[in-house]
């Protein structure tokens, strides 16, 4: 059995909204609401959800880019929440992020050698020709030509920029990569190339991925286990096969139904009505206003996560409906 690399326990991030400088906030958005899970060594852990579900905030809270309100995020036993800058810097070498938009996450004024080399020279003190060699090696690993060393990011296409982002993440020999919508902005053919590259790198360097995405087909292809988020909570956490073959939470089912299948003979009526509204009364299940199975109990009592056939499900009726 593999051991957990990252353990998240009771993680919360609440944002106050409304209210003025002197007045009290009107409301609280629970962007990340009491989330706990483990990420095992060498696995690809998917986090899916629609916009506003808190998946990006969760990733950033884990990295302490956004300070969580409470809870803990342990990396090999060391808690990142409340850790000092020195410890954080070390952990940031071991856990790296790749973002959705390589256009805005790569500094346009830095050449490739500086973009990728920065963290290497900081961590290992490499300079000059040795540094150039390391960066060229990284470029080759992500399928870019080493001649690109002295170019600026704007000389690259979207797919190539995403490869630069991946090369930068790899520069510090990380254990874990958090990929936040890393392939969402790419065309299908480039998306397939990038997913293949990530898989190859995982095999080569025994990487652990936390893969945040909204595209369910991509997540099914890429991940071993998946957490489905709705309005700040994990409503279902299960293995990929189980989640797709036997979804237990009504929201997971609705989400799977809404995905357009690339087969014209599989046209189907689907229909989840309404929209996710981030501020909800603390009473009851958050999905109950849109849930086709909701009863008075759902509207009154907050559900707790239960284990059903190996899956963690946040629903009063999971397993019965």
């Amino acid at each position: 059995m593999t051991e957990p690399v990252i353990e998240v326990r009771g993680l919360n991030k609440h944002f106050n909204i409304g209210g003025g400088f002197f007045s009290k906030p009107n409301d609280v958005v629970r962007a990340v609401d009491n989330i706990s899970f483990d990420v095992m060594r060498g696995e690809s852990f998917g986090i899916v959800g629609e916009s506003g579900s808190g998946k990006t905030t969760l990733g950033r809270c884990m990295m302490q880019i956004i300070k969580p309100s409470s809870g803990s995020v342990k990396f090999h036993g060391t808690d990142l929440v409340g850790a000092d800058q020195k410890t954080l810097r070390q952990i940031w070498q071991a856990i790296r992020m790749v973002f959705q938009d390589p256009q805005s996450s790569l500094n346009p004024r830095l050449r490739v050698i500086d973009l990728i080399g920065q963290s290497i020279s900081k961590a290992e003190g490499l300079k000059g020709a040795a540094l150039a060699d390391r960066v060229s090696e990284l470029l080759t690993k992500v399928g870019l030509r080493p001649e690109f060393l002295h170019r600026y990011p704007n000389a690259f296409s979207g797919g190539q920029r995403q490869r630069l982002g991946i090369a930068r993440a790899l520069a510090t020999n990380p254990e874990v990569i958090i990929a936040d919508e890393a392939v969402s902005a790419l065309d299908v053919s480039i998306q397939a190339q990038t997913l293949n590259l990530l898989k190859d790198l995982q095999e080569q360097y025994a990487l652990t991925y936390i893969f945040v995405a909204h595209d369910l087909a991509v997540v099914e292809h890429f991940c071993d286990r998946i957490a489905v988020m709705y309005l700040g909570q994990i409503v279902e956490l299960s293995t990929t096969t189980d989640l797709f073959q036997n979804p237990k939470h009504p929201y997971t089912r609705a989400l799977l139904e809404a995905v357009p299948i690339p087969d014209p003979r599989a046209r189907k009526p689907r229909r989840l009505k309404g929209e996710a509204i981030p501020i909800v009364a603390s009473k009851g299940c958050r999905f109950s206003p849109r849930c086709p199975h909701a009863t008075d109990m759902c509207r009154e009592t907050v559900p707790t996560t239960r284990k059903i056939d190996g899956a963690d499900v946040l629903c009063h009726y999971a397993g019965d409906i």
Binding site: V188, S189, Q191, A192, L195, N196, K199, L216, A217, V218, E220, H221, F222, F244, L256, V259, I261, P262, D263
Partner: peptide
């Protein structure tokens, strides 16, 4: 080149 839900599991696309 697109992954399909419920499709056969492929390591590479």
């Amino acid at each position: 080149s697109v992954p399909k839900i419920g499709g056969e599991k492929r390591d590479r696309l």
